[in-house]
Design a protein around this nucleic acid. Structure first.
Length: 519
RNA sequence: GGCCCGUUCGUCUAGGGGUUAGGACAGCAGAUUUUCAAUCUGCCAGCAGGAGUUCGAUUCUCCUACGGGCUACCA
């Protein structure tokens, strides 16, 4: 039987629910993006909720880091810890009483029970108890007549994982334990031998027998809820209609469905996203290098490029389109086109996207990014600010990240250290270099300051080439060393023109001296 | 181990009972060029294996292999 209960009311309400254990990384960011796109596309609400129920893993400023990264990506939310909303609070640590209250309801209905065990390995605990507990069930003790929604149909196949021995505790024993202040957790009582099935919007129908699920903890002995309990409660209370999250949560979904059922609540629609994995094929983690959004921001990636790339990890639109502005994504996004195959994260492709977006960005935008990034590293700041707009077109096609602009910016405004390039030229060529420089100086000097533009510098240097029968390539090479300190530079004539007559001559002279000294 | 999920070029993917299996990144080659890029052109490269269904299977079914996830008082 198909799930009759997966009907979600309009309008759509989706959430991104990170746990604040560190930076926002690519995997989570992609989940956030897909939720956000879906909300935008359907004109629904996107909610940010912080799942901070694990004190041990909590990192204090992580919430702010996550918020910053999301904002930087352009992902905004309608309700969240920072802006509030009608379903708050939006930090689970501020909802502890709610979880307790609902857990007690389950206990009252005998759908959960207190557990006074120490925190030992569940394996040793469960294994030996199976028979006893099954007997317990068969003897129709006080827990045997628990009823569940009938949309989980009975099947008969798998060995029961079992209950905790604490299920046998009498009311009196529990009272006594509590009086003694013994710490206790609350376990969910998993129904026996039921087929739990749900229809995943991406993966299709998924079925699990409830007997593979042990009686899992829903409230820890420290009073905090566990993930599987708090997500469900919050998703119910916040009226989430679509749960869009990583595929690693498929295995958790059956437990969660049990909880929905125990509260007689309708299921949201589930859409699980294929994992993003590292080069080694494993779940993306810190081991895989810079995967945090923050790191990409620092490296000089553009948010549009990252969004575009992330969207294509597990989703596609048609057979040819690869470039999607964030707006395109909103317009074209559909859950139906999400695929099931885990995607390897490919840094190279991200780089290509970024290069594309840099090449296509407005000069002003690029100018600001480069200005902000490099101003502190520039000696001649005034000149930098003045010349930058003209520099942008030279740099644009040559960089894939903003940081890469460094090698086109610094040589322009800072002094050149010729000793660094000593090994790049053949000592046999030095005589020729000196020759060229001497001629070039004369040539350049003869250009009037007001005529000092790319066209003229090119004209004069080509004349020099023709007159002295030296190939223009050799001249360019020499001048590049002199004015740029490298064999590679932005287009030479433009660079010379931008550098200006004085600075060009100055560098030529300095290079000449340098060459003379090493002969 | 158990349960769940997956498998189309190296990578991201399109496709779907009959296709020269399409695109993009990377790689390679060429064009352009004052270098490096950018750009343009071309090339290389793929349906995990085995059964079954079928006139025909990469596509549907089953099995195997491989990979991943979960199996916590993590999320």
């Amino acid at each position: 039987m198909d799930n009759p209960k997966i009907t979600a009311p309009e309008p759509v309400r989706v959430r991104f629910a990170p746990s604040p254990t560190g930076y926002l990384h690519i995997g989570s960011a992609r989940t956030a993006l897909f939720n956000w796109l879906f909300a935008k596309k359907t004109k629904g609400k996107f909610i940010l909720r912080i799942e901070d129920t694990d004190i041990k893993r909590h990192i204090e400023n992580a919430i702010q880091l996550i918020i910053n990264s999301l904002k930087w990506l352009g992902i905004n939310w309608d309700e969240g810890p920072d802006i509030g909303g009608n379903y708050g609070p939006y930090r689970q640590s501020q909802r502890i009483e709610i979880y307790k209250e609902y857990a007690e309801k389950l206990i009252a209905q005998k759908k959960a029970y207190y557990c006074f065990c120490n925190q030992k390995k569940s394996e040793e605990k469960f294994n030996s108890k199976i028979n006893i507990i099954n007997d317990n069930y068969n003897n129709s003790s006080n827990i045997a007549n628990i009823t569940y929604e009938n949309d989980i149909t009975k099947i008969n196949k798998i060995k029961n994982v079992g209950n905790c021995e604490c299920i046998k505790l009498t009311k009196e024993q529990i009272k006594e334990n509590k009086k003694k202040n013994l710490p206790y957790a609350i376990r969910f009582l998993t129904p026996k031998n039921y087929l739990i099935s749900f229809n995943d919007l991406v993966y299709g129908k998924i079925k699990v027998n409830s007997d593979v699920l042990e009686d899992f903890i829903i409230i820890r002995s420290n009073g905090l809820p566990t993930y599987n309990f708090s997500v469900v409660l919050d998703d119910i209370l916040m009226e989430i209609t679509h749960v869009i999250r990583g595929e690693d949560h498929i295995s958790n979904t059956p437990k969660q469905i049990l909880i929905y059922n125990s509260f007689k609540k309708n299921l949201p629609k589930f859409a699980h996203l294929p994992m993003i994995i590292g080069e080694d094929g494993e779940k993306l983690s810190k081991r895989h290098g810079s995967i945090s959004i923050e790191a990409y921001k620092e490296e000089g990636f553009l948010p549009e490029a990252i969004n575009n790339y992330m969207a294509l990890l597990g989703w596609s639109y048609d057979e040819k389109t690869t470039i999607f502005s964030t707006n395109d994504l909103i317009n074209k996004f559909t859950l139906e086109k999400i695929n099931k195959k885990p995607a390897k994260f490919d840094y190279n492709k991200l780089l290509w996207f970024n290069g594309h977006y840099i090449r296509n960005s407005k000069p002003k935008v690029l100018e600001k990014l480069i200005h902000d990034k490099f101003l502190s590293k520039i000696k001649d700041k005034e000149n930098f600010i003045k010349k930058l707009p003209q520099l942008i077109p030279l740099i644009k096609p040559r960089i894939k990240t903003i940081n890469e602009a460094e090698k086109f910016i610094l040589p322009f405004f800072n002094d050149i250290d010729y000793t660094r390039i000593k090994n790049e030229f053949d000592t046999l060529d030095i005589k020729l270099y000196l020759n060229i420089i001497r001629e070039a100086v004369l040539n350049i000097q003869s250009i009037k300051k007001e005529d000092f533009n790319p066209q003229n510098t090119e004209k004069y240097l080509r004349e020099l080439s023709a007159k002295n029968n030296i190939h223009i390539k050799k001249i360019a090479e020499t001048l590049r060393f002199a004015i740029w300190g490298s064999k590679v530079s932005p287009p030479l004539f433009e660079t010379i023109a931008l550098l200006g007559k004085d600075k060009t001559l100055d560098r030529l002279t300095k290079f000449e001296e340098f060459l003379k000294n090493i002969v």
